[in-house]
Design a binder for these strands. Structure first.
Lengths: 159, 159
DNA sequence: TTTAAAACCGAGTGATTTAATCGGAATTAG
DNA sequence: CTAATTCCGATTAAATCACTCGGTTTTAAA
């Protein structure tokens, strides 16, 4: 029940893009360097994000990537589903027959559980917009640079 | 982001035990047969459930397994965590240093996302008691045996 | 007291998935 | 032109998954 590095690295990459957003594209090598992720590996995550309409690539020299939409219109759910596939805890394929009916009734009862889990995960990630993380990121950044001892409720990151 | 067969098979096995609950133990071979799960494989799931205090084993001939607690005191979360380990989408180990501080601040921001997902999953599964599934299971069973066409809102299992 | 049914235990294994790496082709600003 | 960069597909080592197997211990029943 773990997210793979696809989701973890990919979200960090998109967030990096969103935080440093401007009119000029950001090269993948820069994202990889700043996030300390293998560029070769990141490279194969990008097509998923591109197909989902989350980022767009600018080819050629001085090229790079841009968000394909404003950050407040991209949910974390969109990003994670693009990278990981659906966020359901089980594949429905192995509990249903070709016609959609259940192959056995016991599985059918546990299906009720899987549905509840699935809904709660999707509701959670769809309820967070990329822009929220950008704001949070900038806030944390500012706190780290000007360590004003008044109002430092979290030092480092907390436990 | 998938549950393994540990969680899927294990929950079905516990449910089987709960549905056929009586004062005499149910042999693993019977559970395996009824749920069409490899007994050898089920056998290695049992220690997890036993250590978590969910089932207890009766050794020797005519032995088998019993729920260690009433079904209304066992949550689906208890069962799934026993079988799968924690239900967090990421291992905190790789985002925190030994002292609990974050190794980098960007990861720290995504951590906010992982926490939200984790909480929503755990809330969902802790909100379902084994006894609820037992009731649901019996209801489905009864419906299947006496297919009264009045009041059959779900045939087979629905899509 | 033997016997058979069962839980209990740990080691081994083939298949699949993950997390990458690598080499090269296409595109484009300068 | 040329260097930077996206884009694409193949390969691979390591880890994990989903089991299997052989054996030991315990205990009810004959």
């Amino acid at each position: 029940m773990k997210l793979s590095t696809k989701g973890r690295y990919g979200l960090r990459a998109v967030l990096e893009l969103a935080v440093h957003e401007s009119d000029e594209a950001v090269a993948l090598s820069l994202i990889a360097e700043r996030q300390r992720i293998s560029m070769n590996y990141l490279e194969q995550l990008i097509p998923k994000l591109r197909k989902a309409g989350i980022v767009k690539g600018i080819r050629g020299a001085q090229g790079g990537y841009l968000l394909a939409m404003p950050a407040d219109q991209i949910s974390i759910g969109d990003i994670l589903r693009a990278l990981e596939g659906d966020l359901n805890p089980v594949n429905c394929a192995d509990v249903s027959n070709g016609d959609g009916s259940c192959s056995n009734s016991d599985t059918c009862v546990t299906k009720y559980v899987w549905k509840r889990i699935s809904d709660s995960i999707n509701d959670a990630v769809d309820g967070i917009m990329l822009s929220e993380l950008v704001e949070e990121s900038k806030r944390v950044q500012a706190e780290a640079e000007i360590p004003t001892n008044s109002d430092s409720k979290k030092q480092s990151c907390g436990k």
